[in-house]
Design a protein around this nucleic acid. Structure first.
Lengths: 144, 144
DNA sequence: TTCAACCTTAGAATGATTCTAACTACTATT
DNA sequence: AATAGTAGTTAGAATCATTCTAAGGTTGAA
């Protein structure tokens, strides 16, 4: 999961769709590819922009992204600093660091984090399903 | 900070405004009161609804909320599950638990959490300013 | 009083997302 | 291969939270 090439990511997304009974249409394939190739934390609008060149409409992009999110293979990531919803292809436990100056988003992996969150949830009698951890601060470059 | 009465909360919000050179107008006072009396995690629309009865416009509500957020005395809290941005009057380190079934939002205090997030950020060479931790799961009631 | 800065407001504008309704492409069955 | 039914796609319209605009009101200092 740590270092995954775009092709591998794209295949994984498509496979997950097929596995749940969704047909691997050319449009869906293109959306998965655009998501995987983005590299960072894409917005729906960015994906629309990319696949529009292949004659794919925005409704299809939103449909596909929503489906992928329901399957839990991507995760929506609403931020204070952005008017668009961003998506995270990495659904393993991690923290998203957002630089409050330059806007860069950095994934910080920390396996112990989910354990801790699950523990806090359990003290409230609740179960843990998913987490969205966003930390704001200055990145290494902007610190100075 | 733990148990704060609405009057105390409202006064604190107003005091913060005055302290930063904003005039404590009746409109701003009403918005602060509505925020404090809400008890939970209000949306801008909910506050507009309340203060509308006193002839206060939505622009004023949005202005005041935005100002309070800039001052760091309330915190915006974008969620996956809600079309509105919610606000948290509690800016001390804590986690927001959201029940994926009934939508309830529960504040879970965990002082050690921020420390951990700050540590993770520092391993990436970044500084820690603020955090937004949201955990999704089933609350005590909906677990069964 | 006068002035300038601050505040508030209704209503318009913006813009991301969702909806609609028509069309197309598959799949299974005969 | 024809048919029928379901799933998928699409352009464009609709929605709706939030922001903007422009005009008018309030305050306090000089």
């Amino acid at each position: 999961m740590a270092i995954m090439q775009p092709e591998e990511r794209a295949r994984r997304l498509l496979r997950e769709l097929e596995h749940h009974g969704y047909r691997p249409t050319p449009q869906r394939e293109a959306v998965c590819w655009a998501l995987a190739r983005h590299g960072g934390h894409p917005t729906a609008a960015e994906i629309v922009e990319v696949v529009k060149q292949h004659g794919i409409g925005q409704a299809t992009v939103y449909n596909t992204i929503t489906t992928l999110e329901k399957l839990g293979v991507i995760q929506s990531m609403p931020l204070n600093t952005d008017e668009h919803t961003r998506y995270d292809l990495d659904t393993t436990p991690h923290m998203n660091f957002v630089c409050s100056q330059c806007g860069a988003i950095i994934d910080c992996h920390a396996p112990q984090l989910d354990l801790m969150l699950a523990q806090i949830a359990s003290t409230a009698g609740a179960t843990f399903e998913a987490a969205n951890v966003v930390v704001y601060g200055r990145c290494e470059r902007c610190k100075n």
